[in-house]
Protein backbone atom coordinates (compact mmCIF):
# COMPACT_ATOMS: atom_id res chain seq x y z
CA UNK A 1 0.00 0.00 0.00
CA UNK A 2 2.79 2.34 0.94
CA UNK A 3 4.60 1.54 -2.29
CA UNK A 4 1.50 2.23 -4.33
CA UNK A 5 0.86 5.65 -2.91
CA UNK A 6 4.46 6.58 -3.50
CA UNK A 7 4.12 5.57 -7.07
CA UNK A 8 0.83 7.38 -7.27
CA UNK A 9 2.60 10.60 -6.51
CA UNK A 10 5.19 9.93 -9.19
CA UNK A 11 6.00 13.30 -10.70
CA UNK A 12 5.46 11.97 -14.20
CA UNK A 13 1.70 11.94 -13.73
CA UNK A 14 1.68 15.40 -12.25
CA UNK A 15 3.82 16.78 -15.04
CA UNK A 16 1.59 15.06 -17.59
CA UNK A 17 -1.55 16.49 -16.05
CA UNK A 18 0.02 19.93 -15.89
CA UNK A 19 1.13 19.78 -19.52
CA UNK A 20 -2.32 18.62 -20.60
CA UNK A 21 -4.13 21.38 -18.71
CA UNK A 22 -1.76 24.13 -19.82
CA UNK A 23 -1.98 23.05 -23.46
CA UNK A 24 -5.75 22.86 -23.22
CA UNK A 25 -5.97 26.33 -21.72
CA UNK A 26 -3.69 27.70 -24.42
CA UNK A 27 -5.98 26.28 -27.08
CA UNK A 28 -9.02 27.78 -25.37
CA UNK A 29 -7.36 31.20 -25.08
CA UNK A 30 -6.46 31.04 -28.78
CA UNK A 31 -10.04 30.12 -29.66
CA UNK A 32 -11.30 33.27 -27.91
CA UNK A 33 -9.94 35.23 -30.87
CA UNK A 34 -12.33 33.51 -33.24
CA UNK A 35 -16.07 33.81 -33.60
CA UNK A 36 -18.06 31.09 -31.84
CA UNK A 37 -21.21 31.35 -33.91
CA UNK A 38 -24.43 29.41 -33.52
CA UNK A 39 -25.28 25.77 -34.19
CA UNK A 40 -26.67 26.57 -37.63
CA UNK A 41 -23.73 28.76 -38.55
CA UNK A 42 -20.89 27.63 -36.41
CA UNK A 43 -17.95 30.01 -36.27
CA UNK A 44 -14.31 29.07 -36.51
CA UNK A 45 -13.92 29.29 -32.74
CA UNK A 46 -16.40 26.63 -31.73
CA UNK A 47 -14.46 23.49 -32.55
CA UNK A 48 -11.09 24.52 -31.08
CA UNK A 49 -12.91 25.74 -27.97
CA UNK A 50 -14.44 22.28 -27.63
CA UNK A 51 -11.08 20.59 -28.15
CA UNK A 52 -9.31 22.84 -25.66
CA UNK A 53 -11.99 22.17 -23.09
CA UNK A 54 -11.67 18.42 -23.64
CA UNK A 55 -7.92 18.63 -23.20
CA UNK A 56 -8.32 20.42 -19.87
CA UNK A 57 -10.88 17.84 -18.72
CA UNK A 58 -8.63 14.93 -19.67
CA UNK A 59 -5.74 16.59 -17.87
CA UNK A 60 -7.86 16.94 -14.75
CA UNK A 61 -8.78 13.28 -15.13
CA UNK A 62 -5.13 12.26 -15.06
CA UNK A 63 -4.52 14.51 -12.05
CA UNK A 64 -7.47 13.01 -10.19
CA UNK A 65 -6.25 9.52 -10.89
CA UNK A 66 -2.81 10.46 -9.65
CA UNK A 67 -4.41 11.70 -6.43
CA UNK A 68 -6.75 8.81 -5.70
CA UNK A 69 -4.99 5.47 -6.17
CA UNK A 70 -4.16 4.89 -9.73
CA UNK A 71 -5.11 1.25 -9.77
CA UNK A 72 -6.07 1.08 -13.40
CA UNK A 73 -2.79 2.65 -14.33
CA UNK A 74 -0.51 -0.05 -13.08
CA UNK A 75 -0.89 -2.36 -16.01
CA UNK A 76 1.95 -3.93 -17.87
CA UNK A 77 1.58 -1.31 -20.57
CA UNK A 78 2.48 1.25 -18.01
CA UNK A 79 5.63 -0.60 -17.20
CA UNK A 80 6.68 -0.41 -20.81
CA UNK A 81 6.12 3.32 -20.68
CA UNK A 82 8.16 3.46 -17.48
CA UNK A 83 11.04 1.73 -19.20
CA UNK A 84 10.82 4.15 -22.08
CA UNK A 85 10.90 7.05 -19.66
CA UNK A 86 13.93 5.78 -17.81
CA UNK A 87 15.67 5.07 -21.07
CA UNK A 88 14.92 8.54 -22.37
CA UNK A 89 16.26 10.18 -19.25
CA UNK A 90 19.82 9.12 -20.13
CA UNK A 91 20.08 10.91 -23.40
CA UNK A 92 21.05 14.52 -22.75
CA UNK A 93 23.62 14.65 -25.51
CA UNK A 94 21.35 13.35 -28.23
CA UNK A 95 18.69 15.67 -26.90
CA UNK A 96 20.81 18.62 -27.99
CA UNK A 97 22.80 17.32 -30.95
CA UNK A 98 19.99 15.68 -32.91
CA UNK A 99 17.61 18.67 -33.10
CA UNK A 100 20.55 21.01 -33.63
CA UNK A 101 21.78 18.99 -36.58
CA UNK A 102 18.32 19.07 -38.18
CA UNK A 103 18.05 22.81 -37.63
CA UNK A 104 21.45 23.33 -39.26
CA UNK A 105 20.35 21.28 -42.23
CA UNK A 106 17.27 23.44 -42.58
CA UNK A 107 19.28 26.66 -42.25
CA UNK A 108 21.92 25.66 -44.77
CA UNK A 109 19.87 23.85 -47.41
CA UNK A 110 18.68 26.82 -49.45
CA UNK A 111 21.47 29.34 -48.90
CA UNK A 112 24.38 26.86 -49.16
CA UNK A 113 23.08 23.84 -50.99
CA UNK A 114 22.38 20.18 -50.38
CA UNK A 115 25.92 18.95 -49.80
CA UNK A 116 26.97 21.51 -47.15
CA UNK A 117 23.64 20.93 -45.39
CA UNK A 118 24.22 17.17 -45.36
CA UNK A 119 27.75 17.60 -44.05
CA UNK A 120 26.58 19.85 -41.22
CA UNK A 121 23.86 17.42 -40.27
CA UNK A 122 26.20 14.44 -40.30
CA UNK A 123 28.95 16.14 -38.32
CA UNK A 124 26.74 17.54 -35.59
CA UNK A 125 24.54 14.50 -35.24
CA UNK A 126 27.57 12.23 -34.97
CA UNK A 127 28.44 13.99 -31.74
CA UNK A 128 25.49 12.27 -30.13
CA UNK A 129 26.98 8.82 -30.62
CA UNK A 130 28.35 7.03 -27.55
CA UNK A 131 31.85 6.91 -28.97
CA UNK A 132 33.66 9.17 -31.38
CA UNK A 133 35.61 7.84 -34.30
CA UNK A 134 37.24 10.05 -36.88
CA UNK A 135 37.22 7.19 -39.36
CA UNK A 136 33.49 6.81 -39.04
CA UNK A 137 32.94 10.55 -39.37
CA UNK A 138 34.98 10.77 -42.57
CA UNK A 139 33.20 7.75 -44.02
CA UNK A 140 29.83 9.28 -43.22
CA UNK A 141 30.83 12.67 -44.62
CA UNK A 142 31.63 11.03 -47.93
CA UNK A 143 29.01 8.32 -47.94
CA UNK A 144 25.88 10.19 -46.91
CA UNK A 145 26.10 13.07 -49.42
CA UNK A 146 27.04 10.62 -52.16
CA UNK A 147 24.10 8.38 -51.39
CA UNK A 148 21.71 11.31 -51.13
CA UNK A 149 22.80 12.81 -54.43
CA UNK A 150 22.55 9.44 -56.15
CA UNK A 151 19.07 8.66 -54.82
CA UNK A 152 17.36 12.02 -54.87
CA UNK A 153 19.10 14.07 -57.52
CA UNK A 154 20.27 11.47 -60.03
CA UNK A 155 17.62 8.86 -59.36
CA UNK A 156 14.50 10.85 -58.63
CA UNK A 157 15.55 14.02 -60.41
CA UNK A 158 14.50 16.33 -57.58
CA UNK A 159 15.57 19.92 -58.23
CA UNK A 160 18.26 20.50 -55.60
CA UNK A 161 21.14 22.95 -55.64
CA UNK A 162 24.13 20.80 -54.66
CA UNK A 163 26.52 23.56 -53.66
CA UNK A 164 25.22 27.09 -54.09
CA UNK A 165 27.13 29.06 -56.68
CA UNK A 166 29.06 26.04 -57.94
CA UNK A 167 26.54 23.41 -58.97
Amino acid sequence: MKMRSLKALAPVDWISALVMIVLGLAVVVGALDYRLGTAGRMGPGFYPMLLGGLMVLLGMGVALRALFGKAADSTSEDKAADDAREEAANSRRSLICVPLSIALFGLLLQPAGLIPACLALVIVSTLAAPTFSIKRLVALCIGVPLLVVLIFVVGLGLPFTLIRGVW
Binding site: V98, G106, L121, P130
Partner: peptide, 30 residues
Protein backbone atom coordinates in the same frame (compact mmCIF):
# COMPACT_ATOMS: atom_id res chain seq x y z
CA UNK B 1 23.55 2.33 -35.27
CA UNK B 2 26.12 5.09 -34.86
CA UNK B 3 26.67 4.95 -38.62
CA UNK B 4 23.04 4.42 -39.47
CA UNK B 5 21.36 7.24 -37.56
CA UNK B 6 23.05 10.24 -39.25
CA UNK B 7 21.94 8.70 -42.55
CA UNK B 8 18.42 8.25 -41.15
CA UNK B 9 18.28 11.89 -40.11
CA UNK B 10 19.42 13.01 -43.56
CA UNK B 11 16.79 10.82 -45.15
CA UNK B 12 14.11 12.33 -42.90
CA UNK B 13 15.14 15.90 -43.66
CA UNK B 14 15.25 15.43 -47.42
CA UNK B 15 12.07 13.39 -47.50
CA UNK B 16 10.19 16.06 -45.62
CA UNK B 17 11.65 18.87 -47.68
CA UNK B 18 10.88 17.19 -50.99
CA UNK B 19 7.14 17.41 -50.41
CA UNK B 20 6.76 21.18 -50.70
CA UNK B 21 10.36 22.32 -51.16
CA UNK B 22 9.88 24.27 -47.94
CA UNK B 23 12.65 24.50 -45.35
CA UNK B 24 9.94 25.29 -42.88
CA UNK B 25 8.92 21.63 -42.90
CA UNK B 26 12.41 20.67 -41.74
CA UNK B 27 11.97 22.82 -38.65
CA UNK B 28 8.56 21.30 -38.10
CA UNK B 29 10.10 17.85 -38.10
CA UNK B 30 12.66 19.02 -35.55
Amino acid sequence: YSVLYPAILTLICIGVYSINSATFDIFVVM
